[in-house]
Design a protein around this nucleic acid. Structure first.
Length: 256
DNA sequence: ATGACTACCCGAGGTAGA
């Protein structure tokens, strides 16, 4: 979901309909003082959020407890001429699970500094998660969000159209797979197999009606949590209609 | 059939998304 203020009412309706216990949101596009807390608290959720400006921004809402919120992760890289740690990572413990809301940098172009930033961001995140799971192998931990990588060829509508573009390059896919190698399982694909199954459709060129999407939003769970996953769904209905986000909600059920 | 992106900043048009 992008732009929480522009989609205030849609998100409220979606919460009422989906009835989720925990929601991780990315691309808020607002500062902390602009964040609509009531949207969540009025529905019985606790909420933690982190936004610095009109770019990025991440939040976690939970109605099963929300403890020890923490911005970023160990050695999270900064970006820019005056380097800034952007608002792209937030974690909190919800019902005994360490939940991360992650908005991986886009990369922009293969020869752009944003691309090396993206790869470094993956490396640092992988090191942090790897250390946590080495220390506590049975820790319940889940990474939710926009990973900005299409790991398989079938995760884009036509690989030929992505020649020379980000999201499908080998270093990006290696970075995503290295993160899995830290001891995580991507839990959504087994319940929502492709091809032709996507989580994002560009606003441009009628991508949604033409079914030209990308699967770039995932949920990566540690072993003790992944084994509890019982189902997943990509709510592509939410991509329809006026005022839709370009990303569809990804929902996972766990039997805990 | 047509026209073919959206939201943010701010108050025009640039930036970013992917």
């Amino acid at each position: 979901m992008n732009s929480i203020r522009a989609r205030h009412d849609r998100i409220g309706a979606w919460l009422d309909r989906s009835d989720v216990d925990v929601l991780a949101i990315q691309e808020l596009k607002c500062k902390d003082e602009q964040f609509p807390e009531d949207l969540f608290t009025s529905r019985g959720y606790e909420v933690s959020f982190h936004g610095l400006n009109q770019w990025n921004g991440v939040a976690i809402a939970s109605r099963v407890g929300l403890e020890d919120p923490e911005i970023g992760f160990t050695d999270i890289p900064s970006f820019g001429e005056e380097p800034v740690v952007e608002a792209r990572a937030l974690s909190a413990t919800c019902g005994g699970v360490r939940v991360y809301s992650l908005y991986v940098p886009n990369g922009r172009e293969l020869d752009h500094p944003h691309y090396t930033y993206k790869l470094e961001w993956y490396r640092a995140l992988t090191a942090d998660i790897s250390a946590q799971l080495s220390e506590t192998p049975d820790k319940k931990l889940v990474l939710c969000g926009d990973f900005n990588v299409a790991p398989l060829d079938e995760d884009v509508w036509d690989m030929a159209e992505f020649d020379g573009l980000t999201h499908v390059s080998e270093p990006e896919r290696d970075a995503f797979n290295s993160l899995l190698g830290a001891g995580l399982t991507e839990v959504t694909r087994q319940f929502t197999p492709g091809p032709g199954v996507y989580t994002f459709w560009d606003y441009q060129r009628l991508a949604f009606p033409k079914k030209k999407g990308m699967r770039i939003d995932f949920e990566l769970a540690s072993p003790s949590l992944a084994e509890k996953a019982t189902g997943a769904e990509i709510d592509r209905e939410e991509r329809k209609g006026k005022g839709a986000s370009d990303h569809a909600p990804v929902i996972v059920d766990y039997e805990v």
